[in-house]
Design a protein around this nucleic acid. Structure first.
Length: 576
RNA sequence: GGCGAGGUAGCUCAGCUGGUUAGAGCGCACGACUCAUAAUCGUGAGGUCGAGAGUUCAAGUCUCUCCCUCGCCA
């Protein structure tokens, strides 16, 4: 039994995420976690909300709430949305919780001891009316090069030139619009990434199980040269900057930069998990994260969107490797491209795209899980369209899987007293389906191991379709007229296929899979992915065992629903 | 502007280090079947692989130029 640590990129706290975020990290991580559990491995799947930083403060202010109260509320909302999609986190923590604060301060302390942190004086724009320092992109003004009036402090969107906030003419605060600004001196801690660069490069060189997308992004950053990076900010909301357990002199009103403490949150959330579970034995967080405390045999797998790759392959490793402590680092990394909305961006303001909570109002989580997995943006960006969604769900879930379950269970109820028939011997049709399964089941496992979810889903669908083909070949309803025993073999095999399909479906559509398996009376300990004995799989249900035809598993998506949703959330004609 | 990804059947996408008649699902046409959510099963029609040039015995797959789309710019 292998030990597998899985994390998905931490969703930011300011509001429910859209389907693209779900599809690019949390969902595939969950599919993988469920798969590995079904394979019998010891899996720890950790996620958390990323709560610090200016956007959280501003969102809280906009909601007229205290930041912590705002985060409390948003964390619960995101947790609920995750539950709605059956995301099976072992723990869904928070970067603002105590363990992450302790760990963040610990890393800063160790890095400073190693000579990798130093104080530097900076000049930053301070907004007197907002009573805060403004991050570069929150300062706007007129571009000194092209006179564009809404250039940002870091760059002009019109002429594309990189800027410093102090370059802007007529600068104003993007937060309040106030022009009452001044430049103040402020001291910050800088992480000397330039000194760690050789270690990071060697570590990236040694990584064998990263996809090319991840490696090329990492090398791109390394080749451009790492920069020493400020890891503190003039904010109230964040991890306090300390020294020897006391507030650090001159840093009383500063906190660590959100990108410094957020990835440490993977570890912090694991500590939260351990504390919630007693913290003993394998429930010990260090046995997952410290190679000197038993994490040597852990395989660590990270899931993220491509925008996060650099932070996970370069920035966070700078923290970890720079500490020179025996922390577990990522082994396998799965990066996703974007799920687009009809080829363009999801956009809240333009009402283009669906958010996680809205999606659940329309349809159960399984529908979305299947679409987003079967259509995952793995090789390239992939487009969501209502029409594609409708056809995929209706075809794969309603017609191929749902109808298969329905047709064979109902036939059993009407002709075989709702029981698994014992009579008859397997023949040609049974040999055919056994051969199909013998080829396709290993392929599915291989695709899952390789984290090729799109291909895995296609293969799972092919197995479901093979079930229908099997019934066409076995045609028990024809045989029933002349030879009830011959029909019984087909029914028995069909029922066992239903159970197998439920087992196969678990990582992808866990709720529906559970209903199928419950209806077939498959006990919990018989639901794992053990496909070695095909003949056994086709005769696994006890003879005479009663089954219940489940209600229709997947309702079809109707054209008028698509029309309504297109109207509400945007679709093919954004201007219409 | 810089950087990145991509342009393959009507649609959404596979096609590894170049090598038999370029694949899948959906959609479409025709046929079969009737246990089933008018579901299912079978057969078939659809592509000069963005454009041009080059390397090679051989290019969707390598090189160059161009066109177009999308994204990112901490």
């Amino acid at each position: 039994m292998a030990r597998i640590l899985i994390t998905s990129a931490l969703p930011y706290i300011n509001g429910v995420k859209h389907l693209g975020n779900l599809a690019g990290s949390m969902l595939p991580a969950d599919v993988y976690a469920r798969f590995q559990r079904a394979m019998g491995h010891d899996v720890l799947y950790i996620c958390a909300t990323d709560e610090h930083g200016t956007p959280a403060e501003l969102a809280a202010a906009a909601a007229d709430m205290d930041v912590r109260a705002y985060c409390d509320e948003q964390h619960e909302i995101q947790k609920r949305a995750g539950d709605g999609f059956a995301l099976s986190y072992d723990y869904f923590g928070r970067t603002s919780n105590e363990p992450n604060i302790v760990l963040t301060q610990h890393f800063a302390h160790v890095l400073e001891e190693k000579g990798l942190i130093e104080e530097r004086l900076e000049h930053q724009v301070f907004s007197i009316d907002d009573d805060r320092f403004l991050p570069d992109r929150y300062v706007e003004g007129t571009c000194p090069h092209c006179d564009f009036e809404r250039a940002r402090g870091d760059q002009c969107d019109n002429c594309g030139r990189l800027l410093e906030p102090t370059d802007l003419k007529e600068p104003y605060s993007k937060i309040s619009g106030s022009k009452n600004l001044e430049v103040r001196e402020t001291k910050h801690l800088h992480l000397l990434q330039t000194k760690v660069e050789p270690q990071i490069r060697a570590w990236v060189d040694a990584a064998t199980e990263w996809p090319s997308l991840a490696k090329s992004i990492a090398y791109k950053w390394l080749d451009e040269g790492l920069r020493d990076r400020s890891i503190t900010r003039d904010l109230k909301w964040g991890v306090p900057v300390t020294r020897d357990g006391q507030p650090r002199e001159g840093f009383e009103n500063k906190v660590f930069y959100v990108w410094f403490d957020a990835p440490i949150g993977y570890i912090g959330a694991t500590v939260e998990w351990a504390e919630a579970n007693g913290g003993a034995g394998s429930r010990d967080w260090e046995s997952w994260w410290r190679t000197d405390k038993g994490a040597g045999d852990v395989t660590y797998v990270q899931f993220m969107g491509k925008d996060n790759v650099a932070f996970h392959t370069v920035s966070f490793p700078a923290t970890i490797l720079g500490s020179e402590e025996p922390w577990k680092t990522v082994d396998k990394l799965k990066a996703f491209n974007w799920l687009t909305w009809y080829g363009g961006k999801f956009s809240t303001s333009e009402q283009r795209g669906v958010f996680m909570d809205q999606a659940l109002d329309l349809l159960p989580g399984d529908y979305w899980r299947w679409y987003l997995t079967a259509n995952a943006p793995e090789g390239a960006d992939s487009a969501f369209t209502w029409e594609h969604f409708q056809s995929l769900i209706n075809s794969d879930l309603a017609n191929v899987l749902g109808n298969f379950v329905n047709r064979i269970t109902r036939y059993t109820a009407s002709k075989f007293d709702g029981r698994v028939p014992a009579a008859g011997e397997p023949g040609e049709a049974e040999a055919w389906i056994a051969d199909e399964l013998g080829q396709r089941l290993p392929a599915i496992v291989a695709h899952m191991e390789a984290m090729e979810f799109r291909k895995a889903a296609a293969e799972v669908r092919a197995v479901w379709a093979a079930g229908n083909e099997y019934l066409t070949r076995a045609e028990p309803w024809v045989k029933y007229k002349s030879d009830v025993d011959a029909a019984a073999v087909g029914v028995r095999t069909g029922l066992n296929l239903v159970a197998l399909f439920g087992i196969l479906a678990q990582p992808f559509i866990p709720e529906a899979a559970g209903r199928i398996l419950d209806a077939m009376g498959v006990p919990q300990d018989r639901r794992s992915w053990q496909f070695g004995d095909i003949a056994g799989l086709l005769d696994a249900l006890p003879h005479g065992h009663a089954i219940t035809p489940p209600p229709v598993l997947f309702a079809k998506i109707e054209d008028d629903q698509v029309a309504e949703w297109t109207q509400r959330f945007g679709g093919a004609e954004p201007d219409a």
